[in-house]
Design a protein around this nucleic acid. Sequence first.
RNA 1: GCGGAUAUGGUGUAAUUGGUAGCCACGUCAGACUUAGGAUCUGAUGCCGAAAGGCGUGGGGGUUCGAGUCCCUUUAUCCGCACCA
Length: 948
Amino acid sequence: MITTTHNNHNKKRVIFANQLQTTKSTTNIMEYNFREIEPKWQQEWKEHKTYQVEIDPSRPKFYVLDMFPYPSGAGLHVGHPLGYIASDIYSRYKRLCGFNVLHPMGYDAFGLPAEQYAIQTGQHPAVTTTQNINRYREQLDKIGFSFDWNREVRTCDPAYYKWTQWAFLKMFGHYYNNKTDKAEPIEKLIAHFEKQGTEGVDAACTNQMRFSAADWAAMDEKQREEVLQNYRLAFRADTMVNWCPKLGTVLANDEVKDGLSVRGGYPVEQKRMKQWLLRVTAYAQRLLDGLERLAWSDSLKEIQRNWIGRSEGAQVFFNIKGSDKKLEIFTTRPDTIFGVTFMVIAPEHEWIDELTTPEHKQEIEEYVAQTKKRSERERIAETKRVSGAFTGSYAVNPFTDKEIPIYVSDYVLAGYGTGAIMAVPAHDSRDYAFARHFNLPIIPVVEGGDLSVESYDAKSGKLINSDFIDGLDVKEAIQVMFTEIERRGLGKKRINYRLRDAIFSRQRYWGEPFPIYYKDDIAYPLSEDKLPLELPPIENFGPTEQGEPPLARVHNWATPEGYPYELSTMPGFAGSSAYYLRYMDPHNDQALVSKEADEYWRNVDLYVGGIEHATGHLMYSRFWNKFLFDLGYVVEDEPFKKLVNQGMIQGRSNFVYRIVGTNKFVSLGLKDQYETQEIHVDVNIVKNDLLNLDAFRAWRPEFAEAEFILEDGKYVCGWAIEKMSKSMYNVVNPDYIVENYGADTLRMYEMFLGPLEQSKPWDTNGIDGVHKFLRRFWRLFYNRDGMLNLSEGKATAAELKTLHKTIKKVREDIENFSFNTSVSAFMICLNELGECNKREILEPLTVLLSPFVPHITEELWQTALGHTDTIFDTRFPEYDEHYLVENSFAYPISFNGKVRFKKELPLGVPNEELEKQVLADSNTARYLDGKTPRKVIVVPGKIINIVI
RNA sequence: GCGGAUAUGGUGUAAUUGGUAGCCACGUCAGACUUAGGAUCUGAUGCCGAAAGGCGUGGGGGUUCGAGUCCCUUUAUCCGCACCA
């Protein structure tokens, strides 16, 4: 049936959540009234400081941490609390299991958006940040989290960033000793220089240095400081940086994606600038090794491994014809050295001028100038394009003594290895493309492949044309060459990492100031007792006309003696790198964390957060923690034992279809009969993909006179999964859900939506199912007239079985973070219990449910069940396997109620081990024929019969 | 290009980890109660078929008594890295 309706003519009414509650709540006052219950308990928890925790050596600790939010102006949407709800359920569960649970929350409050907003509006970032924090807090409070707010931290609070600055000073004052494999005071290195110069020093550094004690003695202060900057763990260096002109600041590698800034999406270019850096690379191997011991997902560990990018290879020196210099290269394939037919150096290579002969000078200069002009983005886009130029110089292959030409090309990166390579076109696709383009010889040294078409890059095969390694397999040959290269003194075995040192300065205002001042252009650390160095107030937040950072606008931004402070500020990851330590002892003004607090709380047992921090925060935190560990300030060398990545919640957008050039809208099923235009419609005026016509007319003035072509009297909307954003009108606000369904329904529904780690769209359709569950649960305690309905009768075996089955399932599910299936378990439990209103069943069930839905359970606990203590003073229910035994047959606890087989077990004997054995054996034995018992398993002392 | 993950009804998902695929919900349909239903309750609902029955976990192949699950291959989507020598 197709009907065209006009204003108010649609007879059939459509159901909407926002209309639904208003009438219903008046019908029965003793229905489950979440609007009353939830604020009541939230107030109660607040007043009694229910979730405040202290060190308690008599109880085991458990530390559950969420990645603290950046308080953006948009507030929370329904996706943000997902991880918080999961961690809250886990915290409450652990607390009920008897752990002393630390579950704090705070704000990552420094950052770009607040500053961008300040530049536009002149509003101080501190003001907007505080407003946003207040809004966040309000929204969070409504959901009923068990955070210990007494421990709240804000990264922009001077009392907090004092310790960020403190850690920076410690890094400035330390270097990494490779021999002891830890950070040590820089004074120790200075003492060594005074005695022996660089002789015997094996330390992480920017450039390898070589000088004697006498050289050191002869240096002035500035020269010495330059040397030390080469070793300090926080140091200043002239380096290629990702410069974002639009944001007016440099960015770290993990803040750039595809040549664009992650925040804002502005183009990023490469620029040489003097910047502060953290020597993260010193910890590359330990960051890699540490992953083995962490209970993180394999995919996340793999991302970190790739980011660290360890590769084993050899450093080899090639003689340069007509020079006493040797060109150093790095290769992971020393076995292919007989196939080297040319060399390539990066355009930024420091010897480029020396290597260029006069007749090639112009060509090379042009090439270098041209590559400089290309932005990072263009270089990425033109990856396939082969370009380069010949320097005119030749190197000598140390194994064949053949002269081979040296080229310059931008496919060789200055920042990796030595910025120079030996090219083996037969077995490296990039070298191959280059050789083809410049007509260079290609010598196969590994059997296999068809070199007329492409290079043969495989890491297996037999060596040929390679003198003494002929006939060996690639893997053997590599090992032979390592020893041969070292024996001949041509170079050494070496490990290279893709990981780069972290650029630590930002040319911004809204961040931690560096506790550094300058005297004669030498950087000096502020003494620790002067911390915190507070961020001075300013009024204009943009860069100066000279392009200096905003802090240059501050008069007297200098020490009392008049020495100027550093003008840049620290990046976002500075404040988040050690916040988990600060939560342990947030009010301590003598230390980042006291010895006592650190030794009790140690590190984070469970960390819940998004995977987007894989190469940023999660890497920097580990580095930061390892550094503090080396110095003895913390007892654990990894900060986050277990990590769970919650998936992103996407938006589910709805569409209406306007017939082009009219104000008529056609329902989804009929839209193909017209020429239509797809328009996003606010998901809050759509339910179950049916449009609320009146709400649509009221939504925007231009739709006030809208007409509709309906199917079966309904307007069906189209839908699509997109990012949750204002412009798609698909943002669902948790406040709205809390108002209409309650926080408990929101909490449970977010978990019910699907596996925690999976990305999934938010879809308010379906929330009724969860809400209905809570109402039915309520009605087991109170009847329709609001009368207490609880029975003291004895539970039947079937009821007990249901209860214990559910306890077991929920327990396992919580431990495995499979919250969606535990919600299902509750629903099944309720279906099975029917009208059962026995205290014996409902009391444990209430406790079991409480981590998920704390408000309703607390209310029932104290009113219907008549307890005076809060639910959190009780223990999480234990299940009892004996209840599963019937007629001398034990049912393996098959959750969905199906019994696949029965096995005879001795009653009254704990039988977990026995069950395991039976299960292990029966899997192979069960279905050999059809129906009869067919296998007898003899377990020492017992005979077990398997029956189908 | 390399590495990782995922793919199951109209929808979100589940599956004792190799053992009756589709639990639990949403939606839909039918019914009960009701002034009303947008409350509540009951039943049906993977697909084809009147039924018997057949088909069915992205496609193809394999291992196995038995495969959503393991192996090979292929396609699609998502994520990470990307000239890393």
